[in-house]
Nucleic acid binder design. Structure first.
Lengths: 361, 361
DNA sequence: CTGAAAGCGCTTACAG
DNA sequence: CTGAAAGCGCTTACAG
């Protein structure tokens, strides 16, 4: 049945059965060549292959997943999310959303969480995951050397792995989700330069974790500084970098008070991490809300200060989607044998008081 | 089989069969109460209903769509997209993407396009669609009175309709996709105020269509003006509105030249439509690229001028997603009986030279 | 009012 | 190397 309507032709889908009929074989044989399960003579194989080419056959995914009997277990290794580390609550939401959807594909997830400040807790979880022998793994490779070793072991066992929120050089993985941290630094700087009054200075704020050298935080800083360097001539902006350990007593107020006293012309602050809220809190306490404040991530705390205007811009990378897509990518690979692209960049979204209510995720 | 692992329990899904077994009836009977197809005694009905409550049964969508035999036809009514109207190419991409996916759900689409400047072409298409008796309709209600009448007729025939790119007061429809145009005008103004130097003026540019009074374009203008009114005190900004008919000979250069001559302190231009590119072209020809230019939509032409810096910001609403979601909403309703929310707001995204490469859609 | 059976398109043992 | 058959969870005539 072919029915012509306005720029579009609706036809019946081609099924395995149709191919089999044309080739004069059974559906089982077509399935064998479709999945390279061997045990087919070269002659019939060629015939079927060419039939498939011509017919633009695409499998019915609903039928595929229904017929698929073996359940898959996906292990997810991500940091715990708490007050000092609010970021990781966000991808987790997406992960749970994906988990609900893939139940129909006979696939479940197991979540393993580690302490972002503890190498040993990371290692403990890695070992547990390896022992549980999952069908696939989603991994936040926070400690890079251990993660690389882990990926090797997964590779030996033929277990596919999707990386979330960073890449890993020279390792073997199915796909990696991440941001272009350098470019996001550019963007922050562009916004800062756009709004700041000429002749003032900017504070680049690194809120350090005890153990953590989070790679993409320094990339953000680098991108920011690099861009400011370019825009300086026209606006005469100076930039100063400050690192504060938030776990130290009296911080960040102590260090910020000192910086402000030394440099009263500070008109903009850029925070490389998701903790801009603690700076906003400080600024409100010192009546300095007119300073331009740019940070990252739509955490609960940041959201509040964006809405009241103390934070001017937040840059976000749809962490929810990142979590969701990491699971879906792995699931599609396991269930449908769909190969993903190797690097999947997150968006670099600009969120303000005005558009936050419409921001999805 | 229940297996406890790190914060998560994996169990076998409950099936209709399980419910039937517990209730001591056949699967057919369970199906009848599940879909309110009547013909079930009150007693067994109550029993099954309570069983379903307790068991948190959710249907296997893969199986559902596989078993679903009747094919659905969705009619899509949208404007033609051409040079003077580049916007409509974008949702169409999403519509086509959705069309590919829903083939597995036994659902196809038919596209009917009309001339945005011609009431009669709209009416012609409406009549055709009505005659073709589709299972559902996706409609861009450009001519509102005719669209309202059309919705009434669909309603009488029990055909569900999803609106795209605007709402319609007091009409009956399944769901509507749209932007909050007023808020997007706020956002544009916020960006403009953030970057513009104090004491200068802004041009609010309406590029009129011959026939078209597109409702959301004037909402954008209203939002923009309203916000500028608020920010004026601190920065002393004046605003001037100009309407240009692009189909008139020598435009937009003639009108813009005149405006610039009268008001040499213009430091920012806001274009309410997707045609900022024609203003960018003008600015380049007059060596005025330093003027802040803010517009809408990631058309090919706009993209070029955003990348080279002539356009500073584009506001986008993920039109691709809007197209995609409108079809998927209708399909889920038809196939799975899933009721959507009535209003689905699009995001109000800010796109710049720095983040455009990572913008999805 | 209710049940038994066939079928959606695919996969997977099993038998030859 | 190949085919026939059963099964995934749901829907849908059909028979009683």
């Amino acid at each position: 049945m072919v029915l012509q309507v306005h720029h579009r032709i609706v036809t019946h889908r081609i099924r395995i059965k149709d191919i089999a009929l044309q080739a004069g074989v059974s559906t089982g044989t077509v399935d064998r060549v479709l999945h390279n399960r061997g045990e087919v003579s070269q002659a019939t194989r060629d015939k079927i292959l060419s039939l498939i080419q011509e017919s633009d056959y695409t499998p019915n995914l609903a039928a595929k997943s229904l017929a698929n009997r073996n359940p898959y277990r996906i292990a997810v290794l991500i940091p715990e999310g708490d007050v000092t580390n609010p970021y990781w609550k966000m991808p987790l939401r997406g992960i749970r959303r994906a988990a609900r959807e893939i139940r129909d594909y006979n696939t479940g997830i197991e979540i393993y969480r580690f302490d972002m400040d503890s190498r040993s807790s990371f290692q403990t979880r890695l070992t547990e995951v390896l022992k549980s022998n999952p069908a696939g793994v989603v991994l936040a490779p926070v400690f890079q050397d251990q993660a690389a070793e882990f990926l090797k072991q997964l590779n030996d066992k033929g277990i596919p792995c999707v990386l979330i929120d960073s890449r890993l050089r020279k390792s073997n993985y199915l796909s990696a989700f991440g941001q272009d941290a350098l470019k996001s630094g550019f963007l922050a700087a562009r916004l800062m330069c756009f709004g700041i009054r000429p002749g003032s200075s900017i504070l680049l704020l690194k809120l350090a974790r005890p153990d953590g050298i989070i790679h993409h935080l320094s990339r953000r800083a680098k991108g920011f500084s690099g861009y400011i360097g370019k825009c300086t001539p026209s606006k005469d902006i100076s930039i100063r970098t400050l690192t504060i350990d938030l776990t130290a007593p009296g911080e960040p107020a102590a260090s910020l008070d000192k910086a402000m006293a030394e440099q009263p012309d500070i008109a903009g602050i850029f925070v490389t991490s998701s903790r801009a809220s603690v700076v906003a809190e400080y600024m409100e306490s010192r009546n300095k809300s007119e300073i331009i404040l740019i940070g990252y991530d739509l955490t609960e705390a940041n959201r509040k200060y964006l809405k009241n205007g103390t934070i001017d811009f937040l840059i976000s990378q749809k962490p929810d989607d990142q979590g969701y897509n990491s699971i879906m990518t792995l699931c599609r690979y396991l269930v449908f044998k769909l190969l993903p692209v190797r690097i999947q960049y997150s968006p670099i979204d600009i969120i303000t008081k005005e558009n936050i209510d419409f921001y999805q995720t």
